[in-house]
Write a protein that binds this DNA or RNA. Structure first.
Lengths: 184, 184
DNA sequence: ACCTGAACACCGTTCAAGT
DNA sequence: ACCTGAACACCGTTCAAGT
């Protein structure tokens, strides 16, 4: 007799996403996920190969969310400089709203899977196209790296509380963003 | 009768630093450290409060190393733009040479202790003074944040293999650095 | 075919007992 | 005063036994 299916991979990934944001990366344990989906920990291994694969699935779905928000932020804007600013601001909003997820996606504590990397590529596509319009396709890649490195670096330092000399962080963000897009 | 002291906090921290660089953050276990210093794991708790304090000590000594290298990279250079370039290049060299340590210092997987933060502040002091010379003390903080965010972001993405669109990463670094210092 | 308890190999940490 | 084995509460993961 078949035992009834008590959960799905989708539910497991959703539970994983919640746990990451609520309790951080170390809160994403197989036991905690199992409890949330109403099953014992060993049963999770029927849906995911191991914890690493679960983490990958969490990352991929989260990167898809981010990619959607970045697309949304740039569509309908004509000036490529304004596209870049809007994308950067959307990235920062995402990070403020879901800091643990941001850390999971862009932090380097984890070696990224192939799927994660293609998803990340899709997320930055709007940035690349804006840069291409600004500096030409020859230097588009260099320019996109300048923008993404700065934005990601700024946000990472902000989340890590690395800005410890006071001052107005929002002002530093706007000041930097203005100079970055003008430098292109 | 007193049992002979078989190790010191210094040796424990040194073992921790080696383990981080060789096996990554998850390789820094109390058991592995204990084995390296010739003692059983419980004995470590005579020298450090817990694993968290050991991590803090590892980070602080490593940040001191970095601060020294950044000071070295800027001294003797007069042009503040060249100071910034030299400091940025030294930061990147450090990251390439000791990637796991770089991740440990600047990653956000860990909440930074007070000591770590003052050490980080000391490390970026040369950058702040160069920026002050370039844009005046009014905007020095904003400028320093622009430079450090970009450099840290670039290096972080490089180490995480986030630059996946090919191209020449060294060229992108030089291209970005040139524009960053010119934007100030 | 899925679910489960029991078990294993790891962690960090505590503590009583040795010297 | 330091060192240690034993123990505890956690991890992730495997597997035989249930349904």
């Amino acid at each position: 007799m078949a035992a009834p299916e008590k959960t799905t991979q989708e539910a497991i990934v959703a539970a994983g996403r919640e746990l990451v944001e609520r309790r951080g990366m170390s809160g994403l344990t197989m036991q905690a996920v199992a409890e949330r989906v109403g099953v014992r920990a060993p049963s999770l291994y029927k849906r995911v190969r191991n914890r690493g694969e679960l983490v990958d699935l969490v990352v991929e779905t989260t990167v898809e969310d981010l990619a959607r928000e970045l697309r949304h932020a740039t569509e309908g804007i004509l000036d490529p400089r304004e596209q870049l600013k809007s994308a950067a601001n959307a990235l920062r909003s995402f990070a403020h709203g879901r800091p643990k997820s941001y850390e999971l996606i862009f932090g380097l504590a984890r070696e990224a899977s192939g799927l994660t990397r293609t998803a990340r590529g899709r997320a930055v596509a709007p940035v690349l196209s804006a840069c291409s319009a600004l500096v030409g396709h020859e230097q588009a890649l260099d320019a996109a790296r300048l923008v993404t490195a700065w934005a990601n670096g700024f946000i990472t330092m902000e989340l890590a509380e690395s800005f410890q000399m006071g001052g107005n962080v929002d002002r530093s963000w706007a000041w930097g963003l203005e100079r970055i897009v003008r430098a292109l």
